[in-house]
Amino acid sequence: MAVLARTSAETLESAWQETPDRPAYDLVRPPEVGLAMVRARAGGTGTRFNLGEMTVSRCVVQVKGGAVGYAYVAGSDTRHAELAAVFDALLQDTARRPAIEIAVIAPLEQEIEAARAARRADSGPTKVEFFTMVRGDN
């Protein structure tokens, strides 16, 4: 879910279109947008407090003759939640899982890691090198 949540509806849409033998599914809980209260801690480690809310989309699907898939993803794109739930269901199918992991999850994981590496590399040159001035002996 960590991978499916960090991608976009468009990416999942094309992955879904390219999935062979796309099964039919029912919406057990149609996709909807709601809120999650984001908690944090004072000083990062102390007392819990409510920082503010974020939008979350969720969906539950039942794949015909298959598993029930759940999705909770950040943001207000309901199609994102629906497709993430479908893939969640397909990933529970031991026959389908390996193919989906190779075709969908692994490339997305790589994309997410590449984006993170790009961010690290962006900030890399802004690391400060300190020079200490040493006074001469004479």
Partner: peptide, 23 residues
């Protein structure tokens, strides 16, 4: 706008110590 949305739940406290920092 937020008053029109249902609340699905509460998150685990953010672990800012594990932040992927830009600054």
């Amino acid at each position: 706008f937020r008053t029109t949305l249902p609340r699905f739940g509460v998150t685990e406290p953010l672990d800012t110590g594990a932040m992927r920092i830009s600054r």
